[in-house]
Design a protein around this nucleic acid. Structure first.
Lengths: 225, 225
DNA sequence: GACAAAAAATGAGTATGCTCACTTTTTGTC
DNA sequence: GACAAAAAGTGAGCATACTCATTTTTTGTC
């Protein structure tokens, strides 16, 4: 066998200001075009009434190409949500104030922030996110061994809880903590989607009420509303 | 205008043992045929891999007819679940022992019974029931003004809670009680669907643990596991 | 630059849930 | 029984998410 070379010095250098190969560049561009077209159409017509054909057309690509980038129309929509989940973590980490809150407040702030951020996507959260509950889904909040984003998020929540446990703020909950949080968040999300009040006031009120209860239970060990 | 008559005595009586008109009879038969064919196929091949064409064929009707009876393939699957919910209520009402349980035990028994009953449908519960979370769905457990079955179920839960409130077993929760129960049941269902342990032991264990917690919180006003 | 292998794009084709204009059956009335 | 209106049934056809064999583009090597 001949020895393998990685790259021939630098070939022809006809174009100056390019780093990453033409391939990767184009791929990036295409992906962005798809996402842009999709978001615009989803916003304008809603998830269901937007066809993949239309997205492709607006993105300037063939119908088939879309599926080279996203496994399905739902995956495409899910992408935006994944982005927000990743963003949620960074937000928390960059927010110095919130780190000083008691655990319960921390967790509620996270949920609130999450709801705020996904507001623009409400239409397809309703249509798509709940699919996440299916055992096979990438985004299922209960499958610890699931997909990257979700796993990452769960670890994030668990770390917050662990810290609180370590400081004696809450009793040791083990895995059940992050687990329970996931379910609670899901419940709230469901309520939120359902919520037809102005600015989702009803959900915010519910969150507030839950926070009071949580605090009461934890701090006073009581059960009075 | 001529006076309206309801029925001409009894027309020709060629066939003896028939009561309800031929129409209603046939309709019933067709519906049953569809449900039977659908259930058999869902069980054999799963919800997704069963086509409406196949169901129609096995039921001995035209493809279009199926949609005269059920609005969609999902509605068809949902029908079985609706049946079980209705059955759940009758079961409770006919079970004298359970009526004497403390509220918490009552509620947990209901959930457990529900899980048992829907076991044969697990495949399409996973595929379909969660769709129920969408605001537009008939089965959404949060839409109080929703569909018959669901509304009926919620009232049922609320009546159990009201009774307990009246007897001072639990603090007054108002609407939030049934609401919270709905969400809890949902959470458990999600876990159940996810659960790959033998006989869903993990979910049963979780239920048990939750029961303990609920009892502790209510009875002792404490927060120790 | 020629060449081949790898990557990406393509769009005609497929599968399937569902619609709808039309046909057939049933019913009530004379 | 004849008739019309209502109900139920029918299946060709539609829309659309997705596949895949083929073509085009890019890359690395000589």
């Amino acid at each position: 066998m001949a020895a393998k070379k990685k790259k021939t010095a630098n070939g022809r250098s006809k174009r100056a200001p390019q780093k990453a190969g033409k391939r990767a560049q184009k791929k990036d561009k295409t992906k962005k075009a798809i996402l842009e077209a999709a978001l615009a159409l989803f916003a304008k017509k809603g998830f269901r009434r937007t066809t993949t054909k239309e997205i492709s057309k607006n993105a300037g690509i063939a119908e088939g190409t879309l599926f080279n980038y996203f496994g399905s129309k739902e995956d495409l929509a899910l992408y935006f949500i994944e982005q927000e989940i990743a963003g949620l973590i960074s937000w928390y980490e960059d927010e110095p104030d919130i780190q000083e809150f008691p655990v319960v407040e921390k967790l509620f702030a996270i949920i609130q922030r999450y709801l705020e951020r996904i507001t623009p996507y409400e239409d397809f959260v309703g249509a798509v996110y709940l699919r996440a509950l299916q055992p096979s889904s990438k985004l299922n909040p209960l499958s610890l061994d699931g997909q990257e984003v979700n796993l990452h998020y769960l670890k994030f929540i668990r770390s917050i809880l662990s810290e609180a446990e370590a400081e004696g703020e809450i009793p040791p909950l083990g895995d059940l903590g992050a687990y329970g949080f996931g379910l609670f968040q899901l419940a709230i999300l469901t309520h939120w989607l359902q919520d037809r009040s102005d600015h989702k006031e009803a959900t915010l009120a519910l969150l507030d009420r839950c926070l009071t209860v949580a605090n009461t239970v934890i701090q006073r060990g009581g059960w009075e509303w």
